[in-house]
Amino acid sequence: MKHQRTILIVEDEKSLRDAIVDILRLKNFLPLEARNGKEGVELALSKHPELILLDLIMPTMDGMTTLKKIREDAWGKKVPIIILTNLSAINGNIVADAVTHTPTFYLIKSDWKLHDIVKKIEAILGI
């Protein structure tokens, strides 16, 4: 059996998280689920996934804080992170913050098909 790539999904909306988990499994990835930023940071730092999908608006800890926390870690500095959100990039500060903390991509969920997201992940990981 081929090596399964670990992908961490940090998403509070269960239906969306389930959809992503399903497609990733289907595409032979190993998805890890976090329901908020706090769980996300813990899982990221303990499991060192190969890529992180990160929502922005979440309870307990929002995505931007999560991003900052992960980037503070030595390992976390390099891990590719895709911000996957429905929050429009209309807020200049979010854009500025996001740029400062260097996510790999910023994708709007409703504009992206699941299959295209998977293609994006594969491209980033060089699969």
């Binding site: 497609i23 959100t85 429905n86 429009s88």
Partner: peptide
């Protein structure tokens, strides 16, 4: 307000999109 409205309105639309997409793609 605009940010949150965009988020709240688009989240259910994304759900419908993604599940319909998987069904249409024959993933299940």
């Amino acid at each position: 307000f605009v940010s949150l409205a965009s988020h709240q309105l688009r989240t259910p639309l994304s759900t419908v999109n993604w599940y319909a997409e998987m069904l249409l793609a024959g993933d299940v």
